[in-house]
Design a protein around this nucleic acid. Structure first.
Length: 113
RNA sequence: CGAGGGGAUUAGGUAAUCGCUGAGUGUUUGUUUUUAAGCACUUAGAGGAAAGUCCGAACACUCCCUUUCGCUUUAAGUGAAAGGUCAAAAGAUAGCGGGUAACGCCCGUCGUCUCGUUUAUGCGAGAUAGAGGUGCGAACAGAGACGUUCUGAUCCGAAAGGUGAAGAACACCCCUUACGGGGUGAGCCCUCUGAGUUAAUUAGAGGGGUGAAACGGCCAAAUCCUUAUUGAGUGCAAGAACAAAUUCCGUUUAAGCGGAAAAAAAGUGGUUCGCUUGAUUUUACGGAGUAAUUCGUAAAACAGAUAAAUGAUUACCGCCUUUAUGCUUCGGUAUAUCGGUACAGAAUUCGGCUUAUUAUCCCUUCGGGCU
RNA sequence: GGCGUCGUAGCCAAGUAGCAAGGCAUCGGUCUGCAAAACCGAUAUACGUGGGUGCAAUUCCCACCGACGCCU
């Protein structure tokens, strides 16, 4: 779990990121991100019912992604809000595959230091 | 051995590292204090279905009605509190009795059903209150066609009869060429007695009318309806409190600042409460009851998030399974190895129902094999 | 989380206790030099799934499955 300051919580924040931020896509993820003034990097995770109808499966994906983001966090550039949206292909993947795919897309977005 | 149904219990374990949410203690910083934020330590942290949201209740608000009290005023209106006896509206439920906070749930009990037999896990108010409906096409009489007749089609037969949910009141006997007529019984209704919980119902006895088109079968789970019972609706995103924004006022060129006038505006973003210990659950002993259930005593247990905690990684063990090898009393067993280890995630809280599903045991039905 | 609505052929869509309309699409024909349009004709595993009531269910009742909407 990410600590308190590193989460995006308000619907408003999500909306502004979707509206003004940049977007990158891969097979497994869609990532929206936006540069801002506060120093803390913040993450939001979205797993919709399109991915799976079962709450357990959606929660599993969210927990694994949270854990990987927590590990990656120190290497990410500061002053960014990042929203990670899961796509349907993730449902079949294990934890390690997800981690690889996640690193790949963040690299593509040039978000590492 | 295989498949199905019912019941009971169970829902993998240990260690290490990195994290999350709640509670408690300590400490640091800010603050007059309350307290807020950070850090450290301790401790707690999903289910039998948490699911579907199909019923029921608690709780909250709204409406209706009743009673009491107050105000204006004598005709009513209005406010508050308590309650759901009565009324309206809208549904819901349905053999009978019991359990429960309540239920459409549970227990007991009665009746009853499929080609036949046996049965429950299935079914259950009223068709003798009434309207209405009741099978391709056409027609006559008729109050009325599901029924009669005709015709074609996808009924058989000369008829009796069969078939069919229903063929026009069931069975037997007598008279008659036939139409038809008579008798006895069953069925239906009423009364009494025994059994049963003063029950549903059932056994027996007695009596009554009924021989029919002015009639009869089926349908209330197609529809209206009748009887009995039950106030209705919305749901914790209910609802309550505090309150940036905004509106208004003052000052001011404006920005901005201050205020809500003695008291008293509004309520969006948001914060707090509601919120988790309660008709609670489990165990033991004793009492009541056929049982569901219930009473008493003792002990133990119990998550509270809000873009939403209960996780990730690694190692080992357990269980199931594939393959190989060794041993074997041929039932198995040991080692290595591939794979698997279900269904599924609290969101106001409980009681049910339904559906999904792992392992073990017990009972039972059906099918096959052997003795 | 709570509440509600709807599933009929490849698509749209009516209907209701008694043989399930219609349109688009598809196929064939007429017309044309060829097409389009128009006209004529034809085809089908169509009532989401499973139980129940009933002589008979797409329709009534119950349970599942799927799609969509509202409350912030």
């Amino acid at each position: 779990m990410l600590s308190f300051e590193n989460r995006i919580k308000k619907k408003k924040d999500f909306d502004t990121i979707f509206e003004k931020g940049d977007i990158i896509r891969s097979k497994d993820f869609v990532v929206n991100f936006l540069e801002k003034e506060e120093a803390e990097t913040r993450f939001g995770i979205v797993v919709s019912k399109k991915v799976s109808n079962k709450a357990t499966e959606r929660n599993r994906i969210k927990r694994i992604l949270r854990n990987h983001l927590r590990v990656i966090l120190p290497r990410i550039k500061e002053r960014f809000d990042i929203v990670v949206i899961a796509r349907e292909s993730l449902i079949k993947k294990g934890s390690k595959e997800m981690a690889g795919s996640l690193e790949e897309i963040l690299l593509k977005g040039n978000l590492f230091k």
